[in-house]
Design a protein around this nucleic acid. Structure first.
Lengths: 204, 204
DNA sequence: CCGCTGAAGAATTTATTGATCATTCAGGCG
DNA sequence: CGCCTGAATGATCAATAAATTCTTCAGCGG
């Protein structure tokens, strides 16, 4: 059992090294296999497909993010500040990762295209931490009460989508992105403090 | 003079008909020329390049939008509602246009890639109407005072970027997009009502 | 002259073909 | 018997050549 997961780890590691350097498209299964002294066919006993290797790679990246999100969401800083920290940390990490290894952007693109559900899964996970912060903020009186925390978290995610894979949606520099993110967060946080009124209808 | 702009209009019209049906890439200059009973070379006396035809096409679409934005921004409805109307109208119009003529999405993509400045120009124009609404809202006391209206408008645009070319960023249906847009607007409007406090620093 | 054409050149796109790749699986090895 | 290999297969990709297409411009006709 540990033997099996050890090999899996080795494959993932070899794949990550190659993919980070050469990109997803330019990395072949037999190259990964060669790095692990095994046949390409054998990889399939550990990963159902090449795409699943990319997914595992992203999952690893995400779990590091979530670790920090969890810590931030539990900290005793003001909730508004925790909200900022979560999104700034996410922005900085992904921007840096893509800056350092441009090929990571390709992995994000491929997964976004081929595994949209995985992306949703990540958003749902992130919302758990956002809800913690929102609920705490409400309890402390920093935020006005909210009907549905998860819904509000979803709306916040929608508004900040641009900063999730920054290099995918624009070509802004990190400072400009941070400035924008801060500006949008200013509005969102003010809105949370004020209390959100849902409007019934909107016609024109 | 009127003769020249008449021909220009004719070319643009012929080009639009073809591009909407066959797409930008599949429409050739000589086809457009043939539709206008002229040579391909002659088109270049009216448009500097094929890309400029696409730009003129988008400019036409935008000017219709701006017309309505202008009316909305001047109406006497509550500013918050005007804000909603602007973005909902934009969403509905672009979604419908792309739904009806899928090839329009290609034009948006090409222009986004090849003429990023044109896109910025459009955003700047839109901000003029947003500023009108914001300033009016502040005057009426619906919104709290703002340091820099144009900056705030820019932040609102950032938060709502996803709804600009909806089919480009997601595959959500129009109702789902409208629901999301409304949710994000709820937060933004609450924030505007409350007043936005700029935060000095954000470290983690 | 002015407005236009149509040929010419450069750049891009398409078609085709050969190679490579992801994935499967029959069979060998321990 | 279970773990692994390496050949087989269909799909995808790369490379090249051929054909189109965008764009320019010399020169024709009004």
């Amino acid at each position: 059992m540990s033997d099996k997961s050890k090999t899996r780890e080795q494959i993932l590691d070899a794949a990550m090294n190659r993919i980070k350097h050469y990109g997803y498209g330019k990395t072949t299964m037999s190259e990964i296999a060669r790095d692990c002294d095994m046949s390409a066919g054998n990889i399939y006993r550990f990963f159902a497909s090449k795409l699943d290797i990319a997914e595992a790679m992203a999952r690893k990246f995400n779990s590091d993010l979530y670790q920090t999100y969890s810590e931030i969401s539990r900290s005793d800083a003001p909730p508004a500040q925790r909200l900022r920290q979560v999104f700034h940390y996410g922005l900085d990490q992904t921007f840096d990762a893509i800056e350092r290894e441009a090929k990571i952007l390709e992995v994000a693109e491929v997964l976004g295209e081929e595994r949209p559900l995985f992306m949703n899964e990540g958003l749902a996970q992130e919302r758990i931490y956002l809800c913690t912060i929102l609920e705490d903020g409400i309890e402390r009186g920093d935020f006005a009460p909210i009907a549905d925390c998860n819904y509000t978290a979803e709306m916040i995610q929608s508004a900040l989508m641009k900063y999730r894979f920054p290099q995918l949606f624009s070509r802004l520099t990190l400072p400009k992105l941070r400035r924008e993110l801060n500006g949008v967060l200013d509005i969102i946080i003010a809105g949370l403090a004020k209390g959100i009124e849902k409007t019934p209808e909107t016609e024109h």
